[in-house]
């Protein structure tokens, strides 16, 4: 069996040292692994928003929907509802999904729709050259906040737990093996999977040293215990100097939106016949 060439000929335009390279490489490795195990990559769809992260849609040689800023998740939801056989993965940015498209993130988690959301969280807008995002630390001096932000970052994992996500994880681009495990686990999970991936922005917010010294793997505990998960999630608020836990925080089984919504579809001619039958009831 010939394996798919997973990278397109598109010229890569990420900055040298960008965390996106790692995410792309990891995703590629996960997909190649799945293909080896017999998964048809024709059944995989990648949906991206707009921002540096989103260029991954150009670079990976798989079905893709390069959407618009903040709107990858509703597109992905529509694709999954149209065809449950598809494996739908969203690559989104932190400005993209926590600012512009936050409503969709919350509702996708609330519905527990079976898609995977990978957030390329570099905590800064890169492509618009350096403004604060919802996860930038307090006081971040960006081009739109030269005196420093006056708002605390939000903790997206806590938000996801409250919203009903059934797979909640955090990765870091310098911990590739863990990231690979988390992404594969998210794809295999039936339900809404969410991974916040800490990545550095080589140009506007390089937190490599901070992440290298502060990240550690989560200890063993019952991942289906929401209270315990919440406690772990709240250890670091995306602002303090606290240790930053990495790994799977929470996972539970629950009915998915897509499996519950399925209606028996009918051939076109049968549908036409039924419109005529309906009209007759009003005659």
């Amino acid at each position: 069996m010939t394996m798919r060439q997973l990278v397109t000929s598109a010229q890569n335009t990420w900055c040298p040292g960008c965390g996106n390279f790692t995410i792309q490489h990891t995703l590629k490795t996960v997909l190649a692994g799945m293909e080896q195990e017999g998964t048809r990559l024709d059944d995989v769809v990648l949906v991206s928003g707009i921002g540096c992260h989103a260029k991954i849609a150009d670079y990976l040689n798989i079905n893709s929907f390069y959407a618009i800023h903040g709107r990858a998740i509703p597109v992905a939801s529509g694709i999954k509802l149209a065809n449950r056989e598809l494996n739908v993965i969203c690559c989104v940015g932190d400005g993209d999904v926590y600012a512009e498209g936050l409503d969709h993130l919350i509702f996708a988690a609330k519905r527990n729709i079976d898609i995977t959301v990978i957030v390329h969280d570099n905590r800064v807008y890169g492509l618009t050259i350096g403004q604060y995002t919802p996860t930038s630390p307090l006081g971040f001096k960006g081009k739109s906040t030269p005196m420093g932000t006056m708002e605390y970052p939000l903790n997206p994992l806590e938000l996801m737990l409250a919203s009903g996500a059934t797979y909640i994880a955090r990765g870091y681009t310098k911990k590739m093996d863990l990231l690979k495990t988390l992404i594969r686990g998210a794809i295999d999970h039936r339900g809404f999977s969410f991974i916040d991936v800490l990545q550095i922005c080589a140009t506007f917010l390089n937190l490599t040293d901070h992440y290298n010294t502060h990240t550690r793997e989560l200890p063993v505990y019952d991942r289906s215990d929401a209270l315990l998960a919440c406690e772990k999630i709240r250890e670091w608020d995306y602002n303090s100097d606290a240790p930053i836990a990495l790994g799977l925080f929470y996972q539970r089984k629950a009915p998915t939106f897509d499996e519950q919504l399925q209606h028996k579809s009918l051939p076109k001619t049968e549908r036409l016949l039924r419109t005529r039958e309906f009209l007759a009831t009003r005659q």
Binding site: V45, V47, F65, A67, I68, R71, P74, V75, A76, S77, G78, I79, K80, L81, A82, N83, L86, H104
Partner: peptide, 10 residues
């Protein structure tokens, strides 16, 4: 956007 997802998937 959801509708465009449906349409993309056929």
């Amino acid at each position: 956007l959801m509708a465009l997802g449906f349409s993309y998937a056929g």
